[in-house]
């Protein structure tokens, strides 16, 4: 509250005469904290996060049962190439290794599978609530009239989405890790190149996966915020983001369009597999990070432009 005594803040110095004097700036930390509390008080946030935490557990147990059940009948590896893998809600097994239930592959595999739709859905939902949702029931009006610059409003809202992205990605990995530890202990911590990894190795690889997934989700969130700033229908935000992702995934299936693929966000999802290789190759992950940051810049600048011209 030290700067509350400033009569004319330097930023507002060029305001025309007659504008309100003495704008009190709320401390940013308090705004961020309030936003995060607000997000995690919504029941739907908690329900989605709960679901996200359950899916790796279900996957782990289901795969474990399948592997143990079929081990007697098919000795040639539990998961056949191209077979209907037991992983993933869309019937596609992203990782064919025999160590699917290990404390290393299960969290990464779950993260990759969920990054296709579920995690972006969570982030899109948070972004939709952040601006469009609040506007639809009038809560945003308070923000727009309050002594908060529009830029800071965007910072606060983006921070909320970032926290959701981080918590969601971290929750999936943590739940997968715990499930893997319960099912297989520290056995089978093996890279795809056949080297055994220490638990420390596994932890830093998983940490990189969480960080990478958070940036990826933030890119989705930034685009969602831009749409969220332009509409007052939260459903529209979620639908556009999911539609965009599905269209991107479809376009990725056509090799004739491979010139377009570097421009599509989900292109980089597969490079998460590189974390299971030894030594880890960071080329694909780095490129994916650059791609996500580009989407982030586009999304945030559009959201900023829309937000600064928004009428109360």
């Amino acid at each position: 509250m030290t700067q509350s005594s400033v009569v004319t803040s330097p930023v507002q110095g060029t305001d025309p005469p007659g504008a309100l004097p003495a704008r009190r700036r709320a401390p940013i930390a308090r705004l961020l904290w309030a936003e995060v509390r607000w997000i995690f008080r919504r029941p739907r946030t908690l329900v989605v996060l709960g679901l996200l935490a359950t899916l790796p557990v279900i996957t782990g147990i289901a795969v474990d049962l399948t592997v143990n059940g079929s081990a007697t009948s098919t000795p040639s590896g539990p998961i056949g190439p191209g077979g209907s893998g037991p992983m993933g809600p869309d019937g596609e097994a992203p990782i064919f290794v025999t160590m699917v239930t290990s404390a290393f592959v299960l969290p990464l595999g779950s993260l990759m599978t969920l990054l296709m739709l579920m995690l972006p859905l969570t982030v899109a939902m948070a972004s939709a609530d952040a601006l469009a949702g609040e506007q639809s029931h009038g809560a945003l009006r308070g923000w727009l009239l309050a002594p908060v610059a529009r830029g800071r409003l965007l910072v606060v809202k983006s921070f909320g989405v970032l926290v959701v992205a981080l918590v969601a990605a971290g929750l999936v990995v943590a739940s997968g890790l715990v499930t893997g530890l319960v099912l297989a202990g520290t056995d089978g911590l093996v890279s795809m190149s056949g080297t055994e990894l220490t638990f420390g190795d596994v932890l830093w690889r998983l940490a990189i996966a969480i960080a990478w997934a958070t940036v990826y989700l933030m890119a989705v969130g930034a685009v969602a915020l831009a749409i969220s700033a332009s509409t007052e229908h939260p459903m529209l935000v979620v639908v556009s983001v999911l539609g965009g992702l599905i269209v991107s995934e479809v376009l990725l299936q056509f090799s004739a369009l491979d010139w377009l693929h570097p421009y599509l966000l989900p292109t980089s999802l597969n490079s998460l597999v590189d974390l299971i290789r030894d030594p880890v190759s960071f080329d694909g992950l780095g490129e994916g990070m650059v791609r996500a940051l580009c989407y982030l810049v586009i999304g945030i600048s559009l959201a900023y432009a829309r937000l600064t011209t928004k009428d109360g």
């Binding site: 570097p262 580009c294 810049v297 559009l302 900023y304 432009a305 829309r306 600064t308």
Partner: peptide
């Protein structure tokens, strides 16, 4: 003024983003 600022922000942001994407391509 805010409108011009918004235009500049949107324009430069999109340009930078697309340039970055083109670089990876």
């Amino acid at each position: 003024r805010p409108k011009a600022k918004a235009l500049v922000a949107a324009g430069s942001g999109i340009a930078a983003g697309i340039a970055g994407l083109a670089l990876t391509a």
